[in-house]
Structure formats: structure tokens, C-alpha cells
């Protein structure tokens, strides 16, 4: 085994930047397209890229989301490896045909003649009171969609590792950057290894309850778990990191121990990915082994602008604590 590479403390957005930088230096087929990327991107994810890689590999595009998405696919079909930057997730709504009917279907429909080896980056979620058209978390839609990988990390290291894996993968990877966590810091190795899809991260260990989450809600889950620990409640907190493929084995092993499952997501609870996790655990372990299973998500309400309204519909640490206790009481 090599000695562990030196790690640096980076923000999540910088961790992502380093990952893409490392890969673009390694492979000249990799390029990035999206609005304002030559100016470093909306969040600085591509700061300095234009100077280093030039205008052919760092392409600031027109505001033409359907063509940003579709052109990325076309470029992948002839052997380049595009990173399609959607600015924020909500604008990918303008490119649904290209994503759902084209990118997700090409390989299968054409009998495996080509793969859509591309990454679509879509920073998502509630951030700075941006209201209904700039705050959505709809990752569950894409877990439901055959033909795509769905990544939704919550830490700088996972963002870096999963981005490297996404870039090297021949599958189309939908990468949901957690907007509200861009500023959180954590260690990131100087040499970023790919983090395989479908391996969950054990955040905390505890015997009373299994809590499953991903993406932007993780810090609230950790705060809730700290509060629960004060009351002597031990939580097995699992960050799925990718929703497709997802680490059923890790969740099943935990639920088999604790017998109680709470899935937490920022997204709307109804028909969210939490429902899939709960259903799979009951199918797999049997109803007798799962004494209680709940989900906690947002109400089926668009994200409102006004701070007290946003706060009212948002999943918070306090709501997570209450849901955890309800799961234990059930």
C-alpha cells in the first residue's frame, strides 16, 4: 500500500473544481460546456479553467439549455467526454427531452452501439431564499429513470471522488451538487481517487435507529443526531452518496440491527426516493424485521420565497429529531 496522499482542507465547491481540473489535465477528451463557464461558472467551479484549457475545452454557451444538453450528448457519441454544466438544476427543465428521451435511451435503444459517457452537473436545492424556480430537489425523478446514474454527495471528499468516478465512467451520470453546502469544508486528498458508485458512507454508528439521507440535508441530520445522542439515542447515520446505484446492502445490514428506519430528504416526501428505500427494506428484510419505517421530506408545496414560509416547509434538524423519536416510539 502506498502511504496516504496528503490531504488539504477545501470547500465543497473547490473540491469539485480540483476533481475536474485533475481529470481535464489527464485526458484531453474531457471538456466542459455551459453558461458563463469561461468566467468560472456561477459558483466558481471552473475558476481558471479557460486560461488553462482554452476556449475549445471550456465553452461558454448561449442560454440554450436544450442544446447544451443535446450537444453534450452528440459530442459524447463521437468520443469526447463532456461535462455538461446546467448552472442550477431548475434550468435542466428546459432540456428534458435531451436528458430523458435521448441521453438516458441512446445506449439501450441502439443495442449498445454507443454509450453516453458524459456528466451532467446540476447544483440543486434550497439556497439563499431563491424561491420556487431556483430551489428544487427532484433527484427522485431520475432515480426513477432507467439509463442514468444519480449522484448526490454531501461532503468535499465525496464530491471530488464521485466527480472523478463520474468523469471516468462510460455511463451518463447526473451529478447533483448540493448548492447550500458549497461552502462547507473538509479534507480532500491531493490525488483524488474515483469513489465507486453505490457505496454508502457510514457517518455515525448507533444501535437504536437507522437514518438514511443524502446531499444537502446531511448536516441537519448530523445536528439532529447530536441532539438525539444527548438524550442517549444512538443513530446509525448513512449517507447514500448515490441514489442509483444505491447501497441497499449497507442499509439492510443496519436496519437488520436496529429494526427502525428513518429516511430523510430535502425533497418533497410524497413519492420521493425515501419511499423506495423503505419499500425495499420491507421487501428484503420482511415486515417482522422492520419494526418501524418512516420518511421525512418536505410537504408537497413549491419552495416559497419568504424566509418564514421557506423555513416552514423545509426539513430542519428539529423536524428530524421529532421524526426520529416518532420512529422510535412506533
Amino acid at each position: 500500500m502506498d502511504a496516504p496522499a496528503t490531504a488539504e482542507t477545501l470547500t465543497l465547491v473547490e473540491a469539485g473544481r480540483r476533481a475536474v481540473l485533475q481529470e481535464m489535465r489527464r485526458d484531453p477528451r474531457i471538456w466542459v460546456l455551459g453558461e458563463d463557464v469561461a468566467r468560472g461558472g456561477l459558483f466558481g467551479q471552473y475558476r481558471g479553467f479557460r486560461d488553462e484549457f482554452g476556449p475549445d475545452r471550456v465553452v461558454s454557451t448561449p442560454i440554450s439549455e436544450s442544446t447544451i444538453m443535446g450537444a453534450g450528448l452528440g459530442a459524447a457519441l463521437v468520443g469526447t467526454r463532456p461535462i455538461i454544466e446546467m448552472r442550477i438544476f431548475d434550468f435542466a427543465m428546459c432540456a428534458m427531452d435531451e436528458l430523458v428521451n435521448q441521453i438516458a435511451k441512446i445506449r439501450y435503444m441502439f443495442g449498445g452501439q454507443a454509450k453516453a459517457a458524459l456528466v451532467v452537473r446540476m447544483p440543486h436545492g434550497i439556497w439563499r431564499n431563491s424561491a420556487a424556480q431556483h430551489s428544487q430537489t427532484l433527484e427522485a425523478w431520475f432515480a426513477h429513470l432507467p439509463g442514468v446514474v444519480v449522484a448526490a454527495p454531501s461532503t468535499p471528499a465525496d464530491t471530488a471522488g464521485l466527480l472523478v468516478a463520474a468523469i471516468r465512467s462510460d455511463d451518463p451520470v447526473l451529478f447533483f451538487d448540493p448548492k447550500n453546502l458549497f461552502g462547507v469544508t473538509g479534507p480532500v486528498p491531493a490525488e483524488i481517487d474515483p469513489l465507486p458508485f453505490g457505496i454508502a458512507r457510514q457517518v455515525l454508528s448507533g444501535g437504536d435507529l437507522t437514518m438514511v439521507a443524502w446531499s444537502s440535508i446531511l448536516p441537519d441530520c448530523e445536528a439532529a443526531c447530536a441532539a438525539l445522542a444527548q438524550e442517549g439515542i444512538g443513530v446509525d447515520l448513512i449517507d447514500l452518496r448515490t441514489l442509483w446505484p444505491w447501497d441497499e446492502d449497507a442499509v439492510a445490514a443496519s436496519v437488520a440491527r436496529t429494526g427502525r428506519l428513518l429516511v430523510v430528504h430535502e425533497a418533497v416526501q410524497a413519492a420521493g426516493f425515501g419511499a423506495e428505500v423503505v419499500a425495499r427494506m420491507i421487501e428484503r428484510l420482511g415486515p417482522a424485521a422492520v419494526k418501524a419505517a418512516r420518511r421525512l421530506g418536505a410537504p408537497r408545496v413549491p419552495v416559497p420565497f419568504s424566509p418564514p414560509l421557506e423555513e416552514a416547509v423545509k426539513v430542519t434538524a428539529a423536524k428530524i429529531v421529532a421524526a426520529a423519536k416518532a420512529t422510535l416510539g412506533a
Binding site: 420556487a132 424556480q133 431556483h134 420565497f305 419568504s306 414560509l309
Partner: peptide, 30 residues
């Protein structure tokens, strides 16, 4: 974001609308 806003605080700057004067809405999507 206050009560009494045209959209009851749900919209904010990017989603101003005042249907009473035929203003069918600002838009967050270009």
C-alpha cells in the same frame, strides 16, 4: 417577503406579478 406582498411573500423579486393591472408575472426562467 412580507404579508401584503402581491404574491403573499411566496414569489419575491424574481416572481413579481400583479394580475389586477395585467402584469402576468416576472419569470425566473430566461
Amino acid at each position: 417577503g412580507r404579508a401584503g406582498g402581491h404574491c403573499g411573500g411566496k414569489g419575491g423579486s424574481m416572481h413579481i406579478a400583479d394580475f389586477s393591472v395585467g402584469m402576468l408575472g416576472a419569470n425566473g426562467v430566461v
